[in-house]
Write a protein that binds this DNA or RNA. Structure first.
Length: 441
RNA sequence: GGCGCGUUCGUCUAGUGGUUAGGACACAGCCCUCUCAAGGCUGGUGCACGGGUUCGACUCCCGUACGCGCUGCCA
């Protein structure tokens, strides 16, 4: 038996998808998937001036990136369309007429207002519980405008009409709408209809406690796409903001979240977005990537950051990238991490230089060079054995020669396994780089 | 100002009258180790405040403070 659960995400096209909006969409989507219901996407573009193709594309792209497919809405259609409010004006006029005929509307200098019945309205919210709003005082709760003198519609009205028309069963939205809800219910009742169920989810705040706004770079989903985050990680992190599996799990498969998702487990207090935790969680997902997944994402990232891979054989690139697996949390860290594979023009880290390129280390580095030069089996195992033997010969711990060698060969004091990276680079390049380094101090 | 909501480590959270207040991120130290990660171990920091109710409150009630939201011819 098909579920009659129908939820919607109703963003306005403001030019990008807000991370809070994405979480709202996610909770709606999870609720729909959990119950086998429908997830509807509706674009609230009543403000024609702000309605652009690019703005809507940002919403579609962001949702798709997060894997939040919609069952009805733009592109996929559905029996309750159209799904852009700008194309539904006749419908709103019809409902307006109904309200006018029953005496609920009055004209205020060309604008139309809904006359409040002036009563108490109880909002029975799935997350917030029963809340009693006293709407009897017109001074504190003025009659709300539903249409401007120029004929354009106000959010409070069209939002309610569309939810009714689209047979939305549950309205899951940000808590910033909680105070508006009793007024929405007044309109619905005036229409003789039954309000949907409501679930108001807590807001997402910045570190400093302020509401996340467009000005914060991490506030848009696009930021995480660009920075090389994994959608599964961002999605997982977003789930943890305000919702909890209640059993201390952090990394949870999507299927599992769908299975256990329950609006009753949504908290009531606002949550602060923690980039560090997202970064960690992304690393958890990144470490699980297969060779080919890692390779694909890595090549894309290197390409978009201007690293030219064309002049290198694919086997070389694959081998190089393989040494980076499990080492980075987000892909935007990769170019700096593995750039030495794809250029001979190394910039030695100044701090590492003062530490490693010392008079004492110069002869040691020569020893390393000589030893590697005579190595026949130039693979990680052979290289490791060679370095260890060299260290022993010099009466040193292997770390003492590893550090200057790494700096000479990669320009940095951090990076992939030295033995493996030397193998990938190959004897010729490695010797040349050590020679070059030796000439600098 | 009015109305509404909220307040457990720095952050995300578990917790529903009796717990050594648990986990995770971050942080610090140690171990492992060719660096960095990863992994393992250890550590510190928390129930906003004041009244009740109760044999007993983080848990229930009332205030206060603080934060957030709404109060638009924005959504």
């Amino acid at each position: 038996m098909p579920s009659d659960i129908r939820v919607r995400f109703a963003p306005s096209p403001t030019g990008y998808l807000h991370i809070g909006g994405a979480r709202t969409a996610l909770f709606n989507w999870l609720f729909a998937r959990h119950h086998g219901g429908k997830f509807v996407l509706r674009i609230e573009d009543t403000d024609i001036k702000r309605n652009t193709e690019e703005a809507m594309a940002a919403i579609y792209d962001g949702l798709q990136w997060l894997g939040l497919n919609w069952d009805e809405g733009p592109h996929v259609r559905g029996e309750f369309g159209p799904y852009l409010q700008s194309e539904r004006t006749e419908l709103y006029a019809k409902y307006l007429k109904k309200l006018q005929d029953t005496g609920h509307i009055f004209d205020d200098q060309g604008a139309l207002r809904f006359r409040s019945p002036r009563e108490h309205v109880i909002v029975d919210d799935i997350v917030c519980g029963k809340i009693d709003f006293d709407l009897s005082n017109p001074a504190t709760h003025p009659d709300m405008t539903i249409r401007r003198p120029d004929g354009s519609w106000i959010f409070h009205f069209v939002n309610v009409i569309d939810d009714l028309e689209m047979k939305i069963s549950h309205v899951i939205r940000g808590e910033d709408h909680l105070s508006n809800t009793p007024k929405h219910i007044e309109i619905i009742r005036a229409l003789g209809a039954t309000p949907p169920h409501y679930a108001h989810i807590p807001l997402i705040l910045n570190r400093d406690g302020s509401k996340m706004s467009k000005r914060d770079e991490g506030a848009r989903v696009e930021y995480y796409i660009r920075r090389g985050y994994l959608p599964a990680a961002v999605r997982n992190y977003l789930c943890l903001l305000g919702w909890s599996p209640k059993d201390n799990r952090e990394k949870i498969d999507l299927d599992e979240i769908i299975r256990i998702f329950d609006l009753k487990n949504i908290g009531r207090s606002s949550a602060t977005f923690d980039p560090d935790k997202l970064h960690w969680l992304n690393g958890e997902y990144a470490r699980e990537l297969s060779d080919s997944e890692f390779y694909g994402l890595a090549v894309a990232k290197l390409g978009s950051s201007g690293v030219n891979l064309d002049k290198f054989p694919e086997t070389y690139v694959r081998a190089a990238l393989q040494t980076c697996e499990g080492k980075i949390n987000t892909f935007d860290e990769l170019p700096a991490y593995c750039g030495f594979y794809f250029t001979d023009d190394l910039n030695y880290d100044p701090e590492a230089v003062t530490k490693q390129f010392t008079p004492e280390n110069k002869p040691r580095l020569r020893e390393v060079s000589d030893a590697l030069r005579t190595l026949e089996q130039f693979d990680a195992a052979g290289i490791e054995a060679t370095l260890k033997a060299t260290a022993k010969k010099l009466g040193l711990k292997v770390g003492a020669i590893v550090h200057p060698t790494r700096l000479a060969v990669t320009g940095s004091n951090v990076g992939p396994s030295l033995y493996h990276l030397i193998e990938v680079l190959g004897k010729e390049k490695v010797l040349a780089r050590i020679d070059h380094a030796l000439a600098t101090f």
